[in-house]
């Protein structure tokens, strides 16, 4: 992992099209401003990992039985 030090207001460029700017540093929280092309989604890392893990766990290879469940009727 590349480690760079930046002050508030300073940025890093990743390639030609991605910019990460330190928008604000307040106590132990760093607010980052991110500019990236549309086809590159940006997520908080822990959320990304959680969803990725959930997708992996849910993925099935080949047919298997489906459970018969009954859901509570939605109240109107």
């Amino acid at each position: 992992m590349l480690i760079l030090s930046r002050r508030e207001g300073e940025s890093v460029m990743i390639g030609d099209h991605i910019q990460v700017r330190v928008a604000r540093i307040e106590h132990d929280v760093v607010r980052l401003g991110i500019t990236a092309p549309r086809d590159l989604p940006v997520f908080r890392e822990e959320i990304y990992q959680k969803i990725r893990e959930a997708n992996r766990e849910a993925a099935r290879r080949g047919p298997a039985a489906l459970p018969q469940i009954s859901l509570p009727k939605k109240s109107e």
Binding site: I47, A54, N55, A58, R60, A64, P67, I69
Partner: peptide, 19 residues
């Protein structure tokens, strides 16, 4: 929403609401 079937006997089924 993507469903995860953790087990069938007994049935333990969850669904991903966050993604």
């Amino acid at each position: 929403n993507i469903v995860t079937i953790h087990s069938m006997e007994p049935a333990f089924v969850t669904v991903n609401l966050a993604g």
